[in-house]
Nucleic acid binder design. Structure first.
Length: 577
DNA sequence: TTAGGGTTAG
């Protein structure tokens, strides 16, 4: 009987066993049997085993087996290069590729390049890749440029370097671009903010291919809700990528309830899904919900990521939950073994600063083991504006002017801090620097959609067809609001818009115009939604509160930082933004 | 026995 159990098994037996394995422990047992049967030097068996191990996230086992294998061929190298990449260890993919080139006589093939280019483009996302690798990949093109898969990988790489013109050139070289090549292009246009191009290509794709796939849906999600309908019709609701992007889309479009609905109905969630839901709640100022989801994530088997902590800390800082934020930060280090990155430190400075604990924030910066960058000083400067601390503001802005001299926002912020402090000379001299150095300014603008047509307003704009009616409406509203106790706040009406202190006397902020226009063109009682590119100022925030009360409307404002839901004279942000 | 594209924060 024993003899039977130990009877020699052949390669096919093990190949079959490996294919059927569903977890790592199956494979470890199988590996033991392979050794007992003397097949651990059989290339085909070992390759299959390594491939399956990396598919089941056992990349260290896979590597060990490979490094003990006497003469690995190109196929085995390819499998391990791809394996590292699939396990999110892209730098090791590149490392193995280098080993292959420097320590062996093997010639990489089109498969090798498809894997290694994909790994390189993923590293770019992590902002770790040096330009040198991109150049190295360019040389690859010389040998394998006719392979559509390699070209598609290169498109993605160039897109992530912000070079879509090269992307377009590569795309033209593909004789019959398939759906995946289209998707690489659409997603490239998307991340490079070339919407208007993304849409055109998406339309072209719909004409040229009968069916779209899940990546297409993702590339086009920012087009809006109708994509969700398309996703439902095409049955992509169970795709984790599509559903996660839907959560993000709904949260960013202001429908946090719909985001939650998608989240709740997902059969399977990964870390990105959880993070998207947490950050969605943070964006809307619903910190307690964000914390609840975070706790559930900890309970689930899904491993936390650095982004999970950024998202939950962001939610805490925007709701004034200092104690909770601090607890999470220390748990992150002590319980979860994460080493905080600069973005985590920035979240903490923001958390303390927003809550008015400026000195504590400064002490925190001094104790940090890393050199504070612009995000950290920027958070402190912003807090100095809110809590009117001119002295610390000078310190923070000096650092910022040194670290990020081209950024006009910090100058504007400092000028506004001086203005609020009634120190007009200092404010003027800061603005003079901006003028002398000819730094680019960002004009504030607000968008409102009426009957699916977007209307964009800028501060003091008089070019809209209905200008007279809009300003008339605004006058009427102002009258009613003053009766209700509204007073214009010009002193502190400045966050990061420039020179609007002067303009305020004669001009009107874009969000007021958009809201007036919205009130004129929507049904009584319906919700008004607007989007502003800069942070909403204190006066407009106050204005919108009054409007929501006297007109009995819900007004949802998305500014550069977050959502504000105005209802019955109150804002969901609790004036904490 | 191996391909390429896609989701989250600041």
């Amino acid at each position: 009987m024993i003899c039977r159990a130990l009877a020699k098994r052949d390669r096919n037996f093990f190949l079959n066993l490996i294919t059927k394995a569903t977890n790592q422990s199956h494979l470890r047992q199988t590996h033991a049997q392979i050794i007992l049967n003397g097949l651990n030097t059989d290339l085909a068996t070992v390759t299959k085993l390594v491939q399956k191990l990396s598919d089941l996230a056992a990349i260290s086992d896979a590597t060990l087996i490979c490094s003990n294998f006497p003469n690995p061929d190109l196929f085995l190298y390819n499998v391990i290069i791809r394996g590292f990449s699939r396990n999110n260890n892209h730098s090791n993919s590149l490392f193995i590729y280098r080993q292959l080139r420097e320590n062996t006589a093997l010639k990489p093939d089109n498969f090798t390049y498809a894997f290694v280019i994909s790994a390189a483009s993923k590293l770019l996302q992590l902002q770790e890749l040096k330009v040198g690798m991109a150049i190295e990949c360019l040389s690859i093109k010389l040998g394998f440029h006719w392979h559509a898969h390699v070209l598609t990988g290169l498109i993605s790489l160039y897109a992530k370097c912000g070079d879509m013109s090269t992307g377009e050139r590569l795309f033209e070289q593909i004789k019959h671009p398939d759906i995946i090549a289209y998707n690489a292009m659409i997603s490239g246009f998307n991340c490079n903010q070339e919407m208007e191009s993304a849409i055109a290509l998406f339309r072209e794709l719909l004409v040229s291919h009968q069916r779209v796939n899940s990546s297409t849906m993702l590339g086009a999600l920012s087009l809006g809700k109708w994509v969700h309908d398309l996703a439902s019709k095409e049955n992509f609701k169970s795709n984790i990528y599509v559903s996660t992007a839907l959560i993000d889309m709904y949260a960013k479009c202001g429908s946090i309830e719909e985001a939650r609905q998608v989240f709740d109905t997902m059969p399977e969630k990964n870390a990105v899904t959880w993070n998207a839901m947490i950050s969605g709640y943070g964006l809307h100022g619903h910190a307690h919900e964000a914390l609840q989801i975070f706790d559930k994530m900890v309970d689930s088997k899904v491993p936390l990521s650095g982004v999970s902590f950024v998202s939950v800390l962001y939610a805490c800082s925007h709701a004034g939950l200092v104690k909770e934020g601090e607890e999470i930060f220390y748990a992150m280090v002590q319980d979860h073994g994460f080493e905080p990155l600069s973005e985590h430190y920035a979240c903490m400075v923001d958390l303390l600063g927003r809550a008015g604990e400026l000195q504590k924030a400064l002490d925190f910066i001094k104790k940090m083991p890393i050199e504070p960058g612009p995000a950290i000083w920027g958070a402190l400067l912003s807090a100095c504006k809110t809590h009117k601390n001119t002295e610390l503001a000078r310190l923070a802005s000096d650092k910022l002017f040194e670290l990020d001299p081209e950024n006009v926002g910090y100058h504007v912020l400092l000028s506004n801090i001086h203005t609020a402090d009634k120190n007009y000379d200092e404010a003027a001299s800061v603005r003079q620097v901006v003028k002398n150095r000819n730094l680019a300014k960002t004009p504030g603008c607000t968008l409102i959609e009426i009957d699916k047509i977007p209307h964009v307003f800028t501060s003091g704009q008089r070019s809209h067809q209905k200008t007279e009616a809009i300003y008339g409406k605004l006058e009427k509203l102002m009258g009613k609001m003053r009766e209700a106790g509204y007073q214009t706040d010009t002193m502190t009406a400045l966050h990061d818009v420039e020179e609007e202190e002067k303009e305020l006397m004669v001009k009107v902020h874009s969000e007021k115009l958009a809201i007036a226009y919205g009130l004129m063109n929507t049904k009584r009682g319906s919700e008004i939604r607007i989007i502003k590119n800069l942070r909403v100022c204190i006066d407009c925030h106050n204005f919108t509160k009054f409007i929501s009360k006297i007109t009995e409307r819900v007004i949802v404002v998305r500014d550069a930082n977050r959502f504000h839901h105005f209802k019955d004279g109150q804002c969901s942000c609790g004036d904490y933004w």
